[in-house]
Amino acid sequence: MPLWSLLSTQVWGPGSVLLILVFLLRLSVQLWHKTQLWDLQHCPTDLTGKTAVVTGANSGIGKVVSQELARRGARVVLACRSRERGQRALAEIQAASKDASLLLGEVDLSSMASIRSFARWLLQECPEIHLLVNNAAVCGIPRTLTPEGLDLTFATNYVGPFLLTNLLQGALQRAGSARVINVSSSWQTQGYFDEEHLTGAGGPLTFNQNYFCSKLLLTSITGEFARRLQGTGVTVNSVEPGVVYTEIMRMLPLYYRFSFWISSFFIKDPTQGANPVLYLSLAKELDGISGKYFSRSCVIIPPAKAAQDPQVAQRLWNASVKLTNLDKVD
């Protein structure tokens, strides 16, 4: 059989061509990520003596961020819903960095009672906090209510970060210079503002729109936090990590999980998704920058229009204060 015939039938068959195309596409995506993102390896920031708190630290982006912060000398508090999974993550990070200083804190971001208990413990352990990464999130499916009567997605993705950041304000200000990073999503542009969603009411929501709206609220309140904390040394920014294949997908129906598994060849892994979050955590050029929304490429971009409106943010703040009882003595 001629050589060209052998190649065409055995090497360059449809299956082989498809595999090669998939490989080349995957390679191009990887190269694109590398050219678009800030280079972590060239960042000299040392965090020795600093304390960082990362929610959702037992897997995905949170785990990668925690490991890098610990590697740079920070004392890292892994804030996890599951103590068992948190212990596993702590052991893995400790194994990767023998000198890592780690604490494990148990907190369910969907529960205000759990957040208050965690904050009391944390403030005793860490009177000064230099970095708070509000990373923990759920995907929005299935639609369920918490024991406190809140939609699980809004409670975890928005109410939890709002309450925790407020409860830790004193420790953040005592640090002298501190950063709060809210991990948002590009899907916030698909959400809309309705403060009644916080209590399980509000306008009707289509498929996964509770996730989109919760991320819009988180982005909006970032600007309000920045305005209220101006001059305190605490900066607050939000960032979209891009589409990342993480365990947040585990609650989706099987056919959606399968779709994400197929697309995982072309979207970011947790290490790539953590890069924009680490940029906001570490980059010296961001000292003093507050109230901004950063893209997956580590540049400042405008968020959804509703998230740019200070009157909307003020209404959201007032509703959130009432919901979380922050206007009452704890």
Rank of each mutant, 00 (worst) to 15 (best):
C139L: 13
A226S: 14
T206C: 08
G191M: 05
V236W: 01
A155S: 13
F162T: 06
R179P: 02
S259L: 14
M249K: 08
E148Q: 13
T153K: 02
P127R: 07
G191H: 01
R174Y: 10
G191D: 05
R179C: 07
F258R: 10
L167K: 11
Q209H: 11
I248C: 09
L152Q: 03
P253S: 12
G231Y: 10
L152A: 11
L164H: 06
N210V: 06
R257M: 12
P142N: 13
A226H: 03
Y255K: 15
R143F: 03
Q230C: 15
L254M: 12
Q169I: 11
C213Q: 06
T165P: 11
G223P: 03
T153R: 00
E240F: 02
Q190I: 07
L163K: 06
A201F: 11
E128P: 04
P204C: 12
E128S: 09
V183P: 01
S214Y: 05
V236N: 01
V138G: 00
P127Y: 05
A175Y: 05
T156H: 02
V244T: 04
T153G: 08
A226E: 02
L252R: 07
I221R: 02
T232E: 04
T235G: 06
T144D: 10
P253D: 10
N208Y: 12
G203K: 11
G223A: 08
T235A: 04
Q190C: 09
V159W: 00
H130Y: 07
L150T: 02
A155Q: 02
A171N: 06
R174F: 05
P161W: 03
T189K: 14
L152W: 02
N134C: 09
N134K: 09
Q188S: 15
N237Q: 10
Q169M: 13
P161I: 02
L218M: 12
E128L: 12
S214E: 01
V133G: 04
Y256G: 01
A171R: 01
F154A: 03
P147Y: 14
T144R: 09
G149A: 14
S214T: 10
Q230H: 15
Q169K: 15
N135Q: 14
G191N: 07
V244Y: 00
P142T: 13
E148C: 15
N157Y: 07
L167G: 10
E148W: 10
Q230G: 15
T144N: 15
N157H: 09
V234G: 03
I129Y: 06
A137L: 06
L254H: 10
E240W: 01
Q169V: 09
A171I: 08
T153I: 04
G140T: 08
A201H: 11
A136Q: 08
I248Y: 07
G203Y: 07
V133T: 15
P127N: 11
Y245N: 14
N135W: 07
Q188P: 08
V243I: 15
F207M: 14
F193P: 00
V243H: 01
V180R: 01
V159L: 08
E224S: 14
L132S: 09
L132W: 05
L131I: 08
E224W: 02
R174P: 03
R250W: 08
L167D: 13
T222G: 04
V234H: 01
S186W: 13
T189H: 11
L217P: 00
L150S: 03
T246I: 05
G140Q: 05
Q169H: 13
H197N: 09
G223R: 03
T246Q: 08
